[in-house]
Amino acid sequence: MTAHTTTRRTDIGGAFPGLRRRRRSRVEQLVEAFLFLSAAVGVLTTAGIVLVLATETAGFFALVSPIDYLTGTVWSASIQPYQFGVLPLITSTLLVAVIALVLAVPVGLLAAVYLAEYASDRVRNTIKPALETIAGIPTIVLGFFAINFLTPVILQPLVPGLGGFSALAAGVVVGLLITPLVASLSDDALRAVPRALREGAYAMGATRFEVSRKVVLPAALSGVMAAVILAMSRAVGETMAVVLAAGTNPNLTLDPRESVQTMTAFIVQISLGDTPQDSIQFKALFAVGATLFAITLGLNVLSNRIVARYRNVYR
């Protein structure tokens, strides 16, 4: 028995050295092929998204000239005469995003400085998960909070003339949504600043505030910028909170008290109704989707570029 086993082992390992290795390598090849195909699903998804948006948008542009679409100031998809000037949707989207950033950037940045420069490890390990809980709340819940609590209880007493749906309420709730993102990414950037820089400043007699403001923040500035741009991209693409809080009124205005319709809200409005799938409204949905995709992709690429550059600074 023992001898037999030994012979067998020798057979594979010695007399036929190629046999086992070849069988093994076929398994390896199959596995590697499966792994590669899985990794390629992502590329196929990207290609698919671009293809779908491009072809359907081309169909829309056969009916509405791209120049009218990009420069028109009236969006009227459900009331005749139909007009498809996308500017009201874009300005509404940016209005909501800017209000969100005006709130989230200072609050998130202060929170990040506290986490990175002041908090002990114990405090940090309690507060950071608590902040990230907010990022995990489904955005539909934040929309519910906006119309049931934020608008009637907090905003309406403060801002006279504020309606039930407004760009302001949407901006505030999206600001709450992206604050953890700004805080978390800025915290990472601040903590990546080498300790030696801080110690040098402390040795010169600087206070903790001075070290944070004059040494750490400038050193981490590009990382913070990348975080802010990513947060903006998130705010532009946010859907459910904005649909509930801002309403569906395609309105070319910069007045935050008014009800507006963002790009995402228009997409939702068309897909909720019984709009026929070959109608011009449904084609407009794809064109707005393509516009939204282009804007968020541009912001994400910009943010990645900044991160890639800043990584080289301290290496």
Binding site: L53, G237, T239, T264, G289, F293, T296
Partner: peptide, 10 residues
């Protein structure tokens, strides 16, 4: 970083 609603369209 692609907004979730774009996945819906796709």
């Amino acid at each position: 970083g692609v907004p979730s609603i774009i996945y819906g369209i796709f």
